[in-house]
């Protein structure tokens, strides 16, 4: 935790120390902002849409958001842990996509609809 806070602090200082750079430097914040935005879009999409495929795509989007954040931190800390992790996540996401789409197809065959609210068998 301490290192992370220090890191943030340092980058802020660095940005402040060199105001006249070639272009505004693309720092950690930018990546994190993109990641957060992407994640938020995914969440909003997941919550508002009823179509199973769209919802599934939204979850993928959230995955990618997490991936971006991981890569960014990985570069920031200058190690490869995050990258390794992202590669795992991508692999699993691919497998998961195959599985999930197959499930969606099966569900569609049952009820001829992709509306998620039709599936509420777990209601208590």
């Amino acid at each position: 935790m301490a290192t992370l806070a220090d890191g943030l602090h340092l980058s802020v200082l660095a940005a402040a120390a060199e105001p006249a750079a070639i272009a505004p430097a693309i720092g950690l914040y930018h990546y994190l902002f993109v990641s957060a935005a992407l994640f938020a879009l995914g969440v909003i999409g997941f919550l508002t849409r009823r179509n199973l495929i769209i919802m599934f795509l939204c979850t993928e989007m959230m995955f990618q958001a997490a991936g971006i954040a991981l890569i960014a931190f990985s570069r920031f800390h200058l190690n490869h842990t995050g990258e390794v992790f992202v590669i795992f996540v991508l692999t699993i996401a691919a497998a998961e996509a195959a599985l999930a789409l197959a499930l969606v197809v099966l569900l569609f065959r049952r009820k001829e609809t992709l509306d998620a609210s039709e599936w509420a068998a777990l209601r208590g």
Binding site: F46, L47, A116, S117, W119, A121, L122, R123, G124
Partner: peptide, 9 residues
């Protein structure tokens, strides 16, 4: 029990 609506969203 009602808190478990069964709806994904």
């Amino acid at each position: 029990r009602p808190s478990q609506s069964g709806v994904l969203q």
